[in-house]
């Protein structure tokens, strides 16, 4: 299990940041992701894997208006 924005999410081996984003249905493009307080570049979302019990923040930057 991992924690994403304070909520638990089932984890599986090899799970990438992008799969976390997809599982949460976060479709917004302007995302910032921090895994255990370490930032992840957007270019690496598809390859950066997360570990069981990781704490992940997926931040939606504000836009629009």
């Amino acid at each position: 299990m991992i924690v994403v924005n304070g909520e638990e999410l089932p984890w599986h081996p090899g799970m990438t940041v992008q799969q976390v984003i997809d599982a949460k249905r976060y479709t917004f493009r302007m995302l910032a992701v921090w895994v255990n307080d370490v930032p992840v570049l957007r270019e690496r979302f598809a390859t950066h894997t997360v570990a069981d019990r990781d704490r992940i923040q997926v931040l939606h930057m504000i836009s629009g208006g």
């Binding site: 302007m30 995302l31 992701v33 930032p39 992840v40 957007r42 923040q57 931040l59 930057m61 208006g65």
Partner: peptide, 23 residues
Amino acid sequence: CKLPWNDIEPADNHVRYRPQDAA
């Protein structure tokens, strides 16, 4: 206009600043 403030952001904004500041 407000839009160029945050409807475009520097390439490293999301990793260079802590989340509270990045917004």
